[in-house]
């Protein structure tokens, strides 16, 4: 089953510094692997044998991330910029997937900050999709995923082609070592531009600024632990939660 694993397609919110006036400084943050990218790669591997798995990344991140994790070939759309409109980001990824051609499954991390991207991608491709799955596998020419829904696990089967977004149930266990990083350098990366894939769509959304959220910050007790503990217990008793 020809499967595309989409990785490093957004900036990591943790790379952004929020100043006291609520403005945001991304410094030189590049597209990075999100916290769900590794889980998405694991799911993609469960769907496709090695030879049918293709990595796809957009922007200025290091494209070798997937290659160091066993993916044999990757495509990078190098001039894609971070966009406020999740549909515009998805349009770039969709164009790259169409250009790869003959894809049966797309697996992508279900980032909370950019939670519109995987679903807009499915919409633009016109493919069935399940979001927020925790695992996936190929089963009789279809894809079977498991998703947590409330207190239940739901097992869902989809016809292909399909888009699956994955939420990580655990962090990456073993970061690639020097051997894997060196092997990754020998694997091919097909570098493309937005013009190459006809994906120069505009960002339909403009940011007018950021501010700090309203609401009081936590009431912090510090100093002597015994004193802080007494104040906290008193406050929790006043709240009626103890």
């Amino acid at each position: 089953m020809k499967t595309v694993i989409v990785y490093k397609w957004a900036r990591n919110p943790e790379d952004a510094a929020v100043r006291a006036d609520g403005t945001v400084d991304w410094r030189n943050a590049r597209m990075t692997a999100g916290e769900d990218d590794f889980a998405a790669l694991e799911a993609a591997r469960a769907i496709a044998p090695e030879g049918e798995l293709i990595g796809l990344t957009i922007g200025d991140g290091d494209a070798s991330w997937a290659l160091a994790r066993g993916v044999l070939q990757a495509v990078a759309v190098t001039d894609a910029a971070p966009l406020a409109d999740n549909a515009a980001t998805a349009a770039i990824i969709a164009a790259a997937i169409r250009r790869i051609g003959g894809v049966d499954a797309v697996v992508i991390g279900d980032s909370e900050e950019y939670s519109g991207v995987p679903v807009a991608l499915a919409g633009l491709l016109g493919w069935p999709a399940v979001a927020h799955a925790t695992s996936a596998e190929a089963a009789g020419g279809r894809i079977r995923v498991v998703r947590k829904q409330g207190r239940n696990d739901q097992t869902i089967s989809l016809a292909t082609p399909a888009v699956i977004s994955i939420a990580a149930a655990s962090p990456e266990k073993k970061v690639p070592g020097m051997k894997e990083l060196l092997a990754a350098r020998k694997r091919p990366i097909t570098r493309q531009t937005l013009a190459d894939i006809d994906a120069a769509g505009p960002d339909g959304v403009t940011t007018k600024g950021t501010r700090l959220p309203d609401g009081a910050a936590a009431r912090l007790f510090d100093g002597d632990p015994a004193n802080a503990a007494r104040q906290l217990v008193a406050a929790l008793r006043d709240e009626g939660v103890l």
């Binding site: 919110p13 943790e14 007018k208 950021t210 309203d214």
Partner: peptide, 11 residues
Amino acid sequence: GLDGRVIETLE
């Protein structure tokens, strides 16, 4: 935005 650290106004 940013894991709840900011409110962003978009148009």
